[in-house]
């Protein structure tokens, strides 16, 4: 499955596509929610590695508007619970991720994103 924590780390890597190639946009997605164990310390540690706006926007694309536009300074439990859900519990099972720059389509099938490129695209 593609969770938003993973989506936040993926960019288009087609040859020559190096700007405005992140975040990939979701298209025609089928989403499943699956509970995950809450771990506040992990989340606090992970926050600095997140591209915040990309996460908020991706959440919205998947119909979740619970995250604030700005990352709060205090990472309280209530906020972390929301972050936990958006980052780790939304699973994109089918659909695609599309590069905002070159339009390359990366398919997601049975929960697995296909980021492979053909030789001419590398």
């Amino acid at each position: 499955m593609v969770r938003l924590i993973t989506h936040n780390l993926l960019s288009c890597h087609v040859k020559g596509c190096t700007r405005n190639n992140f975040p990939l946009r979701f298209q025609d997605v089928k989403v499943e929610l699956r509970e995950a164990e809450f771990n506040a310390e992990f989340l606090r540690n992970f926050v600095p590695r997140i591209e915040w706006k990309a996460l908020v926007d991706a959440g919205k694309e998947l119909g979740d508007t619970s995250l604030p536009e700005e990352l709060p300074e205090m990472l309280g439990d209530e906020f972390l619970k929301k972050l936990h859900h958006v980052l780790l519990e939304i699973h994109v099972e089918e659909g695609a991720m599309v590069c905002p720059n070159c339009g390359h389509v990366y398919k997601i099938m049975s929960g697995i994103p296909n980021m492979l490129l053909t030789e001419s695209e590398i």
């Binding site: 924590i5 780390l9 993926l10 890597h13 994103p113 296909n114 980021m115 492979l116 490129l117």
Partner: peptide, 16 residues
């Protein structure tokens, strides 16, 4: 929970 991605090496992640 593992997060599998079809990718050569770490190609799709390198930039981030």
């Amino acid at each position: 929970t593992l997060d599998p991605v079809l990718s050569s090496l770490s190609d799709a992640f390198n930039q981030r």
